[in-house]
Write a protein that binds this DNA or RNA. Structure first.
Length: 301
DNA sequence: TTCCAGGGGTAGA
DNA sequence: TCTACCCATGGA
């Protein structure tokens, strides 16, 4: 067993704890949430096929935050491996995303946004597009406990084991899912009607991953990316809005039962609920609608 | 047992 | 673009 510590100093407003409680992602396998330690771990299969465990925590250092990524591995990690780990950490924690404009807007909008803790706004994501799409599909038309179960079953059935503790596994690659015949895939996992969507996605992404990354290219307009996301079976309006959020685009409100119940209770107490009016409530936030809604929801009770 | 969940696909207007 | 209807699964 070997350990390698990677430390990253973050100078911009940054709030690690807020990432952990930003949405449910920290609680989905192969993430391991450690709330008492204010940290989380994650099993990761690197491009080389090496499976490692990452223990991710943060500490305050004067005016900046130091991220500590304790990497547990068998054998030695190459420079390429270490670079890949840093890049994936930067991605899942959104270290390179700029929220300056959002914070300025929050301070002008009054409460609850004006009182938002510094560095809020980063919602945890997964290293790969495949993992995030699969997880978003697993949040549709099901309670959160069901989402956790389905994701856990996928990891347990098809994730590559961590050699130092084979009970822990990485998130399955598209290849590993695609090579399983559909009938077997469907009967191994209890995904309900989502099984064909996820298996088909795995097949397509294993055949032509570049097409998917080209689809979400940063130079594309949000509406264009949204249209492409909607062409994926299993992704509708809610899931597309959630995927856009995960891609760093906050233009769309994810209209689901949570949104409708929250808006109904907060703004439609004495009158009939109007969905268009509820969505339009966030129009003033422009490209920051999702974060505005999400923060209001988090602080509502 | 029935209802429905952090909805979406499809057919038919 | 909008509406009905169907969809597996499991928790409440």
């Amino acid at each position: 067993m070997a350990e390698t510590l990677i430390s990253l100093d973050i100078e911009q407003p940054f709030n690690f704890k807020r990432i952990l409680v930003s949405h449910g992602w920290v609680d989905l396998a192969p993430n391991i949430y450690q709330p008492e330690a204010n940290s989380f771990a994650r099993i990761e299969e690197l491009k080389s096929g090496t499976v490692i465990k990452l223990d991710i925590s943060a500490e305050k250092k004067d005016d900046l935050t130091r991220l500590n990524i304790q990497t547990h591995h068998k054998g030695k990690l190459s420079k390429v491996n270490l670079h890949e780990i840093e890049m994936l950490i930067r991605h899942i924690l959104r270290l390179d995303e700029d929220f300056t404009e959002f914070y300025a807007l929050c301070s002008r909008q009054g409460e609850p946004w004006a009182g938002m803790p510094s560095g809020t706004g980063r919602l945890l994501r997964s290293p790969s597009l495949f993992e995030d799409i699969v997880k978003v599909i697993c949040t549709t038309n099901i309670q959160w406990g069901g989402t956790r179960r389905m994701v856990r079953e996928m990891v347990e059935a098809y994730g590559k084991p961590f050699p130092l503790n084979p009970e822990l596994r990485a998130f399955p690659t598209p290849d590993r899912m695609a090579e399983v015949p559909f009938e077997k895939f469907k009967n191994t996992l209890r995904l309900g009607y989502r099984a064909p969507y996820i298996h088909e996605l795995a097949v397509q992404m294993s055949q032509d991953p570049a097409a998917f990354y080209e689809m979400i290219d940063g130079s594309r307009k949000t509406a264009e990316i949204r249209k492409r996301l909607l062409s994926i079976k299993g992704i509708g309006n809610y899931a597309a809005a959630t995927m856009l959020m995960l891609l760093g685009r906050y233009d769309e409100i994810p209209v689901d039962s949570v949104f409708q119940q929250f808006m109904n209770e907060k703004y439609f107490k004495d009158r009939e609920f109007d969905l268009k009016e509820a969505v339009a409530y966030y129009d003033g936030w422009g490209k920051w609608k999702y974060l505005a809604y999400w923060y209001e929801l988090l602080t509502s009770d």
